[in-house]
């Protein structure tokens, strides 16, 4: 479904991402993990259209999308969330999602259909469809859900989830992970989930890629990640990995 080949990003000589390649199958959840500065956000932003790759290609269902603007990426069928939620505070919760449903799809969508799709997305993530509900009434977990609902409302085939667990407590993290899994099943969406918290993520993802200093150091099943000596080395002391949570 998505094929990334030799993806490279340089910032004035500094190589942030170095020749990364991977592929995704339809309906798969891929975990893209690594410590801070590993290049996962840069990779994410290249796929999302916020950064232009210096080299390499990104193909969605055979079509090159590397270097396209975010709006074109969205209309190609890729939805994204932001690490720090960026809601449109002047709009209600429902209107945030209606905006995404109305503008986020290729071709014209009627307002009534956009409203239906927005309500469906909000229900899927467990947010109210009340037209008066304000963004200000949402806490950290609610804002993350709104990010997800907005992305889902664009009817993506591929969802890019950027650190959906950041700022959440353990219960909320587990709920968020289950929700992503639920969304994948309900909508048959392929998901790339970028995260630096490994434990919860490993319960849900089908495969994981670990980045460090812009290089791909591991790709494999969740249970294998926990045993890989290079992964253990980069995380040891800096991150508490609950390996026993990793899906066997």
């Amino acid at each position: 479904m998505l094929r990334v080949e030799n993806l490279t990003k340089r910032f004035s000589g500094f190589v942030a991402v170095n020749r990364i390649s991977f592929a995704l199958e339809q309906g798969e959840i891929l975990g893209l993990i690594g410590p801070n500065g590993s290049g996962k956000s840069t990779t994410f932003n290249m796929i999302a259209g916020l950064l232009k790759p210096s080299e390499g290609s990104i193909r969605l269902e055979g079509r090159e999308i590397g270097g396209l603007a975010p709006i074109e990426i969205c209309h190609s069928g890729i939805g994204r969330t932001f690490q720090i939620p960026r809601p449109f505070k002047q709009l209600t919760i429902l209107d945030n999602v209606v905006t995404a449903a109305f503008y986020g799809q290729r071709g014209s969508v009627s307002r009534a259909k956009a409203l239906d799709q927005a309500e469906e997305a909000l229900t899927l993530v467990g947010l109210p469809t009340d037209p008066q509900a304000e963004v200000a009434s949402l806490g950290a977990a609610g804002l993350k859900k709104l990010e997800l609902a907005r992305a889902i409302a664009t009817q993506p085939r591929l969802l890019l989830a950027d650190e959906s667990l950041g700022g959440l407590d353990e219960t909320e993290m587990n709920a968020a992970a289950d929700m992503l899994n639920h969304i994948r099943r309900e909508k048959n969406i392929t998901i790339i989930w970028v995260e630096h918290i490994m434990g919860v993520l490993m319960r849900v993802v089908d495969r994981a890629i670990v980045l460090d200093h812009g290089e791909k150091i591991f790709e494999g099943l969740p249970r294998e990640v926990a045993r890989d000596p290079r992964v253990i080395e980069i995380y040891l002391g800096s991150e508490k990995i609950t390996f026993d949570e990793a899906r066997s």
């Binding site: 999302a48 916020l50 603007a69 975010p70 709006i71 990426i73 969205c74 209309h75 939805g79 994204r80 932001f82 960026r86 809601p87 449109f88 505070k89 002047q90 709009l91 209107d95 945030n96 209606v98 905006t99 995404a100 109305f102 503008y103 986020g104 799809q105 307002r111 956009a114 907005r150 992305a151 409302a153 664009t154």
Partner: peptide, 24 residues
Amino acid sequence: SMLRYALEASSEDEDAAASVGVNV
């Protein structure tokens, strides 16, 4: 109109607006 939604979104965060398909 839906133009208001697009403009409200764009006035707050152009990147986020573009990421949901708004032609800012």
